[in-house]
Design a binder for these strands. Structure first.
Length: 482
RNA sequence: GGCGCCAUGGUGUAACUGGUUAACACGCCGCCCUCUCAAGGCGGAGAGUUCGGGUUCGAUCCCCGAUGGCGCUACCA
């Protein structure tokens, strides 16, 4: 409504890795917040660490964002292309005496740090360059001496901020070192670039991981020195692995794209992620399934919890089955087609047959992958028999003959429907004095290659008479003992 | 080590400003269905809210301490 009041938020990943689960959740929260309040969601790439950043990672992050369905309104902006803003900001801070040139070399600093730790002293910068007269420093600098710019942290007192999630957080200034704003090569550190950009981009709310809480006072100090209005900080608890340590590669998949590759429905992933560290409140405690629109409508900062959350693969898997089941076959089809493409599988059925088969199979699907693996027999004649299934239900030597005979019945039958197929089979079983179950289970494996499938007669109807007949006969011709 | 943050079943969360048999979901276990099951239906176990003090008629909820976990502690972000 009022453009001046609408919030502006951002997701600011650094392209030193793919989009991981934690980053994705941060992005999601920002996106939900922006959408809920009709605000602006900005994507900013923090690539000021040239050593570790790469373009490929940027692409990976964008791909991840798109997969979860998080569209941004502005950007992506690249900090590497905004260097002059940071340099100007640093100069401004130096000019106002809030920052100073530091001529200590990286090697020297490391050395002193090592000494300090060895001596049991806190390894903070000793501020020695702070006492160099500004004129002297400027002269040395213009003479060509390499200099970093450090922020001049106030001597006493403390710096506090009111976090929307954690409440008031306070740090003694004595605990904050004179951090580097601008490296000696003119590239800004994170501390400077975030603040300069957040101010420049007129961000109103900073929603980010709780690992930034300790950095926040350094930023608050800069806002004040720059005379800028403080945004609202909202720190989000971290996502941990099952062993409650920080989620990392060693916990398995941590890249968002890995979940796509596992056959997860993007909306299921989003739903799962939204509920990690956030809850819609007591009015919705009996509900777990929330569409994107639901989430947008319900999302607010108050629902964010303070404690870290453990990533539970089982629960994600459950969300996935729920979404697959709830989606119409038409909606599932493009997702499944992606799987087929990835598996280099080409279905040989009409769209109508495909859609019907998807509808039949989806209650039993654990992931989209199933449609390209264990469900292949429904979409093509190019499929394999699961050895375990063959052993379990097709090992009786009498079966192949019986199934062939049954096939003949089907071939000769005037009609072929779910009901008639069942009738034919049961009559046949009674006639032969064998248990219908044995025939049904054997047929299931013969028709689908799997021990698990929907109701056999529904499967038969989906496959059609001709395929049922030929697959039933194929058992005796090509014994597929596993 | 210093500083900061957090703490409800195995996991994610709920419990209005202190008063509930501490709720829901995932997972787990069992039973049913019977043509399979990773499907469906039904049921069950599992926390007295990390521990110890305090305030209060009464604490999951407020205060203090302990313990544990996590984060930060770079010319990384």
């Amino acid at each position: 409504m009022n453009p001046n009041n609408s919030p502006r938020v951002r997701f600011a990943p650094s392209p030193t890795g793919y989009l991981h689960v934690g980053g994705a959740r941060t992005a999601l929260f920002n996106w939900l917040f922006a959408r809920h309040f009709n605000g602006t969601f900005i994507l900013r790439i923090e690539d000021t660490d040239f050593e570790r950043s790469s373009e490929a990672m940027v692409d990976g992050i964008l791909e991840g964002m798109r997969w979860i369905g998080l569209n941004w309104d502005e950007g992506p902006f690249f900090q590497s292309q905004r260097l002059s803003l940071y340099q100007q900001t640093a100069e401004k801070l130096v000019a106002s005496r809030h920052a100073y040139y530091c001529f200590c070399t990286k090697e020297k600093l490391e050395q002193r740090r090592a000494q300090a730790t060895a001596a049991g002293r806190p390894p903070m910068y000793d501020r020695r360059c702070r006492s160099i007269a500004p004129e002297t420093a400027a002269a040395r600098k213009s003479a060509g001496e390499a200099a970093a710019v450090r922020f001049s942290v106030p001597d006493g007192g403390s710096t506090a901020f009111d976090d929307a999630v954690f409440g008031r957080v306070e740090f003694a200034n004595a605990e904050i070192e004179d951090f580097v704003l601008l490296r000696s090569d003119g590239i800004p550190t994170y501390h400077l670039s975030v603040v300069a950009d957040d101010i420049d981009m007129r961000l109103t709310h900073i929603i980010r991981g709780a690992d930034h809480i300790s950095n926040t006072p350094k930023q608050v100090l800069q806002y004040r020195a720059l005379g800028a209005e403080l945004p609202v900080f909202a720190h989000v608890p971290l996502i941990l692995g099952p062993d409650k340590t920080r989620l990392s590669k060693r916990h398995g998949a941590t890249s968002v794209i890995a979940y796509k590759d596992m056959g997860i429905v993007p909306e299921a992933f989003r739903n799962f992620l939204a509920l990690l560290g956030w809850s819609p409140g007591p009015g919705h405690k009996d509900r777990e399934i929330f569409s994107s629109d639901d989430l947008i409508q319900l999302f607010n900062l108050d629902g964010i919890s303070k404690s870290n959350a453990v990533f539970d693969n089982d629960k994600l898997a459950w969300f996935n089955t729920e979404y697959i089941r709830a989606y119409d076959p038409e909606r599932l089809l493009p997702l499944i087609q992606d799987e087929w493409k990835a598996a280099e599988f080409t279905p040989s059925r009409s769209t109508g047959e495909i859609l019907a088969a998807i509808d039949l199979l989806k209650p039993r699907a654990r992931s989209l992958k199933d449609f390209a693996t264990s469900f292949r027999a429904y979409f093509s004649d190019d499929f394999e028999y699961d050895p375990a299934a063959v052993t379990k239900f097709l090992s009786d030597p009498a079966l192949p003959v019986l199934l062939e005979e049954l096939a003949a019945r089907y071939a000769a039958a005037p009609e072929f429907s779910e009901a008639s197929a069942e009738q034919t089979l049961r009559d046949f079983a009674a006639e032969k004095n064998i248990k219908a179950g044995a025939l049904i289970n054997g047929s299931r494996v013969a028709l689908t290659g799997q021990a698990v499938a929907p109701s056999l007669f529904a499967v038969m109807a989906a496959l059609g008479k001709d395929r049922v007949v030929s697959r039933l006969c194929a058992v005796s011709k090509a014994p597929t003992s596993g």
